[in-house]
Design a protein around this nucleic acid. Structure first.
Lengths: 156, 156
DNA sequence: TCTCGGGACGACACCGGCGTAATTCCGTCG
DNA sequence: CGACGGAATTACGCCGGTGTCGTCCCGAGA
């Protein structure tokens, strides 16, 4: 607050800490167009990326998929679809990945149907948990940051 | 039938064809102790592996997990657990992989519970489908082989 | 405007999971 | 018994996904 107002968002290092990935992964994903910082891209060596709160949600969702043993290649396909549908009501929605197809599902009933008909393997990621995990990590690591349920402010 | 009776089981090449993987994968998996032929191991160059019908089920289950984008490393962990539980009633049972834990689940209700409590990602593989797929592939590729629901005879 | 530090960039290495040959046999059949 | 075909073995290479370093440079602070 010394100057006037810090730029919103999170630095690369902080984003990596919050979602629990290495900086190398964050960097690699940014370069290969998996998750790029929406607030500020890198413009050459020495510049600084700025990640939005929604970027953190995507990063955390990816982290969860990786922890579940999903290949990064598959994650790329999934988020090609998911990026459009990822609205503001991420709460209580489940992401279902069936082979190379991805669907957003609300109720548990729909999931049963998919399992019944289910050919192939279903990967189910509860997106609500993602938001909770990110928020928890923020208050734990950087308690001074304000969180207002789907929007946050970051400082360096 | 010229000699007397062919040795039961499937050759490596046939097993690979039936489950839809490359021979190189089958070989690599056998050497790295993911799926080894139960009827006859390799005893040096020139020898021949013999795979049982249940081996085919495991191979096909693995193939399905790979197609779903699961990392082979994770598959290894899963089958460390699954190999004991993989009884004869593989029909209509679902394999649920939660992180590094794996569970066998019968009804769809239990799945919903898991999703509701669900932290992390759930991978669901319907094992019944595996058996159907293998049987179908056998009759399609080698119609002369007899299939008796959970036991089969192979010739070269 | 000078400095100084953090962060992007580039090159390199490494390991897993195969593909692609060439090689070496075992088995079986004539 | 001698040859031949099919299958296991070995060697080599490739590519994806990171870890590790060293370098370079932007940006904030004074």
């Amino acid at each position: 607050m010394t100057t006037e107002r810090m730029i919103d968002g999170f630095s690369g290092k902080k984003a990596a800490e919050i979602v629990g990935i290495t900086y190398r992964q964050l960097d690699y994903w940014a370069r290969t167009d998996l998750v790029r910082p929406t607030l500020a891209e890198a413009r050459g060596s020495g510049s600084r990326r700025r990640y939005s709160y929604r970027d953190l949600l995507e990063l955390k969702a990816i982290k969860n998929l990786l922890d579940a043993g999903i290949r990064l290649e598959t994650v790329r396909d999934v988020f090609g679809y998911l990026r459009d549908e990822l609205g503001e009501d991420v709460t209580q929605v489940n992401l279902v990945i069936s082979g190379n197809r991805s669907v957003l599902v609300r109720s548990g009933e729909e999931i049963i149907d998919l399992v019944q008909n289910g050919q192939g393997v279903l990967n189910i990621l509860p997106l609500g948990g993602v938001k909770e995990e990110v928020d928890a990590a923020i208050v734990e690591l950087f308690p001074d940051l304000e969180i207002e349920s789907s929007a946050a402010t970051g400082s360096n």
